[in-house]
Design a protein around this nucleic acid. Sequence first.
DNA 1: ACGAGATCCTGTCAGC
DNA 2: TGCTGACAGGATCTCG
Length: 287
Amino acid sequence: MPELPEVEVIARGLREPLTGRCLERVRVDDVRAVPGHTPEEFVERVQGARVVGVRRRGKLLLFDLDHASLAGAGGAMAPGQGGSVLTVHLRMTGRLVHGGDRPHEAHERIRFHLDDGSVLTFADVRRFGGCRVFTPDELEQWSFWRALGPEPLEVDREVFVDLLQKRRARIKALLLDQRVVAGVGNIYADESLFRAGIRPDAVAALVSRKRLGALHQALQEVLLQAIAENGSSISDYRTARGDAGAFQNSFQVYGKAGQTCQTCGATLCGCKVGGRSTTYCPHCQPS
DNA sequence: ACGAGATCCTGTCAGC
DNA sequence: TGCTGACAGGATCTCG
């Protein structure tokens, strides 16, 4: 389940090999992999475009495309003019793999043939993920894009604390809400709350500003460590080169309900918060 | 406006 | 052995 660190690692891995490459030929095998488009329209809008940048925003992967080469011999178009943005959301089981030409893989949904002979594939077992194309103006109008909260690695500590302290929802549900902060999922919510000593089901408004400040720091530390370790590989996640991440070996609570807390020796508790399975230490996270 | 719960989807695994 | 049901969860929709 790719969250901010996994998407960041994928973006970094694709930036060098994809920038400057042309999407020579594109094939869509599953309508639902291109929500909001017909396969024909999607192909028409990305095929022939050149990748000029690879970015991340929250859990969203963005490829900046330039269509200038399609416009003819003119050449000197202003940056952004005639450009568009290809967005990829991996959701639960989406995978983006770049490499040499190879046989159709299981659950492959979209295949991009690049002008250097390499291939970028989007595969997704559960079909929750998807790719969309936008003009810059359309992107700014996209409700999901507009609603995204600040980047957790960039948001100011006081802004983060204010954001949470005015809310009466449970704190983990807020961390998972992309409109509050963009990019946090179940793994990094549980891990950062553990490090900050806050129970996941605590009402945000009732947590002290000091502890919310500790959560800001814990969240940044967890995300940076996970990026440094190439993300977490539970089952489906791989980097764009097909490598597994290593941060799953650093989990202190996620997926460990019933096991012993490595910090205090108490038995880790499992429960549901916001409909998501949640693990915490009743001793290290008292309130 | 806000919070909470259901929904989608399919592979995996526990239990019978 | 083979079947059934529970489970995983990000974003979206609906309801109170």
